[in-house]
Design a protein around this nucleic acid. Sequence first.
DNA 1: CTGAAAGCGCTAACAT
DNA 2: ATGTTAGCGCTTTCAG
Lengths: 338, 338
Amino acid sequence: MTIARERPTLEAVARRAGVSRATVSRVVNGSTTVAEPIQEAVRQAVRELGYVPNLAARSLVTQRTDSIALILPESATRVFSDDQFFPGIVRGVSQELEAADKQLVLIMAGSAASYDRVERYTTGRHVDGVMFASMHGVDPLPGTLARIGIPVVCSGRPMGRGTPPVPYVDVDSVGGVAHAVRYLLDAGRQRIATIAGPQDMVAGIDRLAGYRNELKGSRRRSIVANGDFTRESGAIAMRQLLEDDPSLDAVFVASDLMAHGALRTLREAGRRVPDDVAVVGFDDVEIARYTDPPLTTVRQPIIEIGREMVRQLLRIAQGEEVEEALILQTELVVRESA
Amino acid sequence: MTIARERPTLEAVARRAGVSRATVSRVVNGSTTVAEPIQEAVRQAVRELGYVPNLAARSLVTQRTDSIALILPESATRVFSDDQFFPGIVRGVSQELEAADKQLVLIMAGSAASYDRVERYTTGRHVDGVMFASMHGVDPLPGTLARIGIPVVCSGRPMGRGTPPVPYVDVDSVGGVAHAVRYLLDAGRQRIATIAGPQDMVAGIDRLAGYRNELKGSRRRSIVANGDFTRESGAIAMRQLLEDDPSLDAVFVASDLMAHGALRTLREAGRRVPDDVAVVGFDDVEIARYTDPPLTTVRQPIIEIGREMVRQLLRIAQGEEVEEALILQTELVVRESA
DNA sequence: CTGAAAGCGCTAACAT
DNA sequence: ATGTTAGCGCTTTCAG
């Protein structure tokens, strides 16, 4: 199928054009210090031979690859589920990387074996920098990378303190949730439950902490069920809550997707929303506008997180010092009246 | 933030362990021909120095990177839309690559600039093989890669014949559509329209051809509107069709997502499905089971396409000859009775 | 403005 | 079983 077993090298081009390797290299890399006629001769030789530079060789000497990895420690199934978090991050990252003319390589790693591969891939310097999103538990990889000098940025504060600390971009979850809960309190709600996110992820932990914090001041007891950010888990958790406390009149749900599931359960249980039970979500993904009723939720600038991750990463790659934390603001979006 | 500016090399490890570079290389790569005590000494040195192999150097000599690219010539927005084609392909590819212990790097390229970058990235041998899905128009890149000896496989027959031909995995669209149309004919439908996919994609072209082919034998005239595989375009195309021929009683839609949109339009227009108008889709994605009424559709084994692409690619990479075309079968799934 | 030469860090014969 | 040696294909001083 392929004849071209022998790929032409710089050397071959140089011979053909009757110049030195150095000159060919200069032309190929767009140096302006080469006489026009020679440039043309070189380009011609490149064309005739079908020369394409070997990036491995180049990056061996330049120490750059001009590509950046975004690691999603999740299975492909999860990444492409209807959770709008991943698309948001990827879009933000793409936009910003586009502007910097860097190649984005997206890597999913849902299993232990694949995570090992990712470790080899990234530590081996196949990319100039690495971003992590949706991390679970205490993950040593970001710290490892940072230690061997590869620029890293995480989305969400990494769990466990490492040395050196890994810079991250996050949103003010605790503050956002506080707004949400206060909104429910102000509306006179008495028994405010929560459906928490997975407790192996900072997003899950922080949102639950925000809820507990805010409730503490109001002498109300907390009523908690756990989900994993999927719609289905929200439906199940809501059932659990209704069992635990049938008289609850409000629930803060740690993600819109789970809130969507919770709404279904409430409807099935004959509770009116928001009359009987007020529901507030988190994320402000598109679905929040189409639920019945539309969801009051805490807006999180997901795309912006992606963009900021890239900006931080590029700064680090240029040797600039950056703050460990870059925190973006959240905002309560009221859609139904509780 | 990072102290490790100087990355230890094989050389450094060798010195520290008091052996030669070759021995260290053997240990690092798991050769069994090294005496146990020496292995241990080397591993210790590796640990102490925090040595990590430089993959660029390695692949410069081995000519391998153990990673494979999947190129999606679409924007991130489109890839993460609710079109279940992309997730299916990615899942199939992931599964199969996992088994081969190769790293998948997913690359999206929705703009011309990004496509240039992808060309540089792939021709530069950053990966051992390249897969393409969702191609638009005549794309020279697969052919270019094949020519310079990089294994390539496409999903869907590439448009335009190149030299050498690029191997591809596709489904029997024409046959699948024929079944669908015949099903409508057998049900006694008289005016069978179609909502075609984008005509710059083989999937769009082939499905339209299948419709025209099958209709030709029945002396019925074809009624065509165009969409771009999105739900919204299906809704719009359906409106168009109703205007063109208010008396149509059936429509074959080239994708389930467009069919979903078409159903909405039909409902708004007061047509009952399937009583007034029968609708048949293509893809059999999950949504087809949840539309109202559930969609009769042509099932396409999307995940299998992904898996087969990888299998073909690995064969090519091992120097095996493969057939240019690998065609998977489709199947009509009847859900509503037309 | 161009060429010669010295590596980048690693692997793989080939010796020993 | 281990070491020596010769590159892989490229960039980049440094001379000229």
